[in-house]
Amino acid sequence: MNVTRRTWVSAGIVSVILAGGISVAAAASAGGIGRSHDPVTPAVEGDQPAPKNTSASQSPPEAPPSPGTTPPAEDYVVSKDVNPDPQQVGRYWTEQRLEDADPLPMPAVEGNVNVTE
Score class of each variant (00 low, 15 high):
G90V: 09
E99M: 08
P42W: 04
P86W: 03
W93P: 00
P60L: 05
R35P: 00
S36N: 14
W8L: 12
L18C: 15
A19I: 13
P65V: 01
L98C: 05
G31M: 10
V40K: 08
P105M: 01
V24G: 01
A43T: 11
P86D: 06
T54L: 02
V16P: 00
A27F: 15
D85C: 02
A101Q: 11
E74L: 01
A56L: 07
S79K: 08
N2I: 07
D100C: 03
A43M: 12
G31K: 11
G46C: 09
P103Q: 04
Q48M: 08
S66H: 09
P72A: 07
G34L: 04
A56P: 02
A28G: 14
E117G: 12
S59V: 14
P107D: 09
I22E: 03
T70G: 01
N2G: 10
S15Y: 03
G21W: 06
P42G: 07
Q88C: 05
I13W: 01
G12V: 03
L18Q: 04
A43Y: 12
S29I: 11
Q48E: 14
S29N: 15
G32E: 06
S66I: 05
V82E: 10
V3K: 05
P107K: 02
G90S: 10
I17N: 02
G90Y: 05
H37S: 08
V44H: 13
S55R: 05
Y76R: 09
V82D: 11
V89N: 10
A19G: 08
P51Q: 04
G68Y: 03
Q58E: 14
A63W: 08
P65N: 02
P42V: 07
R5I: 03
V3A: 06
D85L: 01
P49K: 01
I33K: 06
G111T: 08
G31E: 13
A27P: 00
V89F: 06
P84Q: 02
E95D: 14
V109P: 00
T70C: 04
I13Q: 01
S36G: 07
N53Y: 10
A27M: 13
R91E: 08
E45D: 15
S23L: 14
G34E: 09
Q87G: 11
P72R: 05
